[in-house]
């Protein structure tokens, strides 16, 4: 299992508003990336576009998943092929229990034929193990999907789903926000375990506002998104620097750089140069 997600010059809009403006990023097996950036820069939009949310329209660009055209696939195909997103704002589905949803989802991910399910006993064993690992209240399995969950419960339930679906490439969208430090540690430990269990093959993109979670999930690369593009990338230290300089500092500097870029062309990653005072 060796996966590769390649995002090339991706532009996307919601309704009439262009949000992604030439995003470029590659996430490969075994790599752990962090994607940071101020509110509204388009991180969540990128995640939804990658999963094929029909609410977002791709205007141009390309996304390859293991050399296949990801954008041509239905969301369920993407998920079956190993892409996973832990959503920032998971929706609730009254009437559908977590247990029946997850059993169906795991069966689909594992390639069971249409409408065939893994045995109840096997599912229960699996679910119990994951619930325990992630220190999630087992009662969650009997509840309706995300219905009445607190913010923290929702985030943990997303990670539980991730653990059950064993993705090749996982995107975690602000999983840490709304969790206290202890919960962040539990979630991070869970993700690290998944990473190890995959033989260090899982690729992870951690979308986050704060460097906090990156203390526990160590990224190999850190990227900063601003106004729909990745404007800089660096190693793990970038996250710390970012924390000190703050997004306002970046914004001011970015706007200065952006003014020098002629037209709406692809913005080249400015690397660390980006925050040196001109």
């Amino acid at each position: 299992m060796s996966a590769e997600l390649l995002i090339k010059n991706l532009w996307a809009q919601v309704e009439d508003k262009v949000i992604l403006k030439g995003a470029n990023l590659a996430v490969r097996s075994g790599e752990i990336h962090a994607l940071m950036g101020p509110n509204g820069s388009g991180k969540t939009t990128l995640a939804h576009v990658l999963m094929g949310n029909p609410f977002y329209q791709v205007i141009k660009g390309e996304v390859l998943y293991n050399n296949e055209d990801l954008l041509a696939m239905a969301p369920d195909d993407r998920a079956r092929k190993g892409l996973f997103i832990a959503f920032q704002y998971p929706v609730s589905i009254p009437g559908v229990t977590m247990a029946s949803f997850l059993r169906t989802a795991v069966s689909a991910r594992r390639g069971y034929e249409k409408d065939h399910l893994m045995s109840l006993a096997e599912f229960q064993k699996l679910a119990r193990a994951k619930v325990e690992e992630l220190q999630v209240d087992p009662a969650v399995l009997g509840r309706y999907v995300n219905e009445g969950f607190s913010g923290g419960e929702k985030k943990r339930a997303e990670i539980l789903q991730m653990a059950l679906l064993e993705p090749e490439i996982a995107i975690m969208d602000e999983t840490d926000s709304g969790l206290d430090v202890d919960a962040v540690k539990i979630v991070a430990a869970g993700v690290n375990r998944m990473y190890e269990a995959s033989g260090k093959k899982m690729g992870v993109l951690v979308i986050t506002h704060y460097p906090r979670i990156l203390k526990y999930i160590k990224p190999t690369r850190v990227h900063v998104m601003f106004d729909g593009r990745i404007v800089t990338s660096g190693d793990a230290d970038l996250a710390e620097e970012l924390d000190q300089i703050g997004y306002d500092g970046i914004r001011a500097q970015y706007e200065r750089v952006a003014a020098e870029v002629v037209g709406e062309g692809e913005v080249r990653s400015a690397g660390k140069v980006f925050w040196v005072q001109h």
């Binding site: 999963m51 094929g52 949310n53 029909p54 609410f55 239905a74 969301p75 369920d76 993407r78 998920a79 079956r80 997103i85 959503f87 998971p90 929706v91 589905i93 949803f101 169906t104 989802a105 689909a108 991910r109 249409k114 999907v145 789903q161 679906l165």
Partner: peptide, 9 residues
């Protein structure tokens, strides 16, 4: 969409 993102057709 949420359900489909979890591999359900």
């Amino acid at each position: 969409f949420y359900l489909m993102s979890r591999a359900l057709p």
